[in-house]
Design a protein around this nucleic acid. Structure first.
Lengths: 145, 145
DNA sequence: AAAGTTGTAACTTCGCTTGTTTCAACTTTC
DNA sequence: GAAAGTTGAAACAAGCGAAGTTACAACTTT
């Protein structure tokens, strides 16, 4: 099992927008070309990022722009925006533990806190990284090529 | 996307083995009854846990037993045993970034370290929790019922 | 008015997770 | 040693979600 590639695609998309905005009109077609992700999927991702207040797009005119400063966008913001995990959480509990069994009816309670803590550890790490860092690294690697 | 329920099922299974071993023969049927998970799946999970050196099972005789002390089994050991994530890692990178594009051919390098750090944060949290803690909590909740 | 772009819905494809069926190999018990 | 119960494993089916695809209305710019 893996976290949807929409997440890495979204980071890629935002990095492109930052780097190419001003030089060209960054349309969903351009972004599809760079990411290798279908243009409709790109537009879906852009839609989710727009809902989250991370980018600005408009029908007709074409070209996406960042709606926030790079260092105000964390990887967690992006991860949340593209719905990597739903309300159920990262871990999928087996669905029919037997309530007739003392373990079956209590295992959920015994585990939930620990599963949440693990998920939180992941998310805190994502919160501590900003898009500014990723873009800076990308620019640096490009310059060193 | 979610981490396979085999993980929580495995923890449930191990908890049952610890609590019921001695009182009854803890067969895959018994475990299937408590977890609500198909008995064949239970046997698969037990097989993975056996490969990892966490439980002992034998053909014919029936009944699983723990192969280690409770406090020597971490949630991470179980998570690894049941193959929650493969070698690719927890995050799924979009597969065809365009190497003609400076961002496309470098985004992987720019992100990989940070994705690994996030995954590690999750796994470290799982490493810090032992089955002993989960079983202790489960017993406590049962007593308080 | 024409051309290009976004937003969205409906459908398809593919792979993964879980369940199911089946059966050989093994152990215990009578 | 035969019967009953259990494990291990393979093969197949069903269901679900991710990603791609097609199609088109709404919008902007020229």
């Amino acid at each position: 099992m893996q976290i949807t590639s929409k997440f890495t695609a979204a980071v890629h998309i935002l990095t492109c927008i930052d780097i190419f905005d001003g030089q060209m009109r960054v349309t969903s077609d351009v972004l599809s070309g760079s990411t290798g992700v279908n243009a409709v999927i790109v537009r879906n991702v852009l839609g989710q990022l727009r809902t989250a207040g991370i980018v600005e797009t408009r029908q007709g005119s074409g070209g996406a722009h960042l709606a926030k400063a790079l260092d105000e966008i964390t990887l967690y913001d992006i991860y949340k925006a593209v719905d990597c995990v739903d309300d159920e959480g990262l871990f999928h509990f087996h669905e029919n533990p037997n309530v007739e069994c003392p373990v079956g009816r209590n295992i959920h309670k015994a585990m939930d806190g620990r599963l949440e803590a693990a998920q939180e550890a992941l998310e805190n790490e994502l919160k501590s990284t900003t898009l500014a860092q990723v873009v800076a690294d990308t620019r640096k690697i490009i310059e060193e090529e």
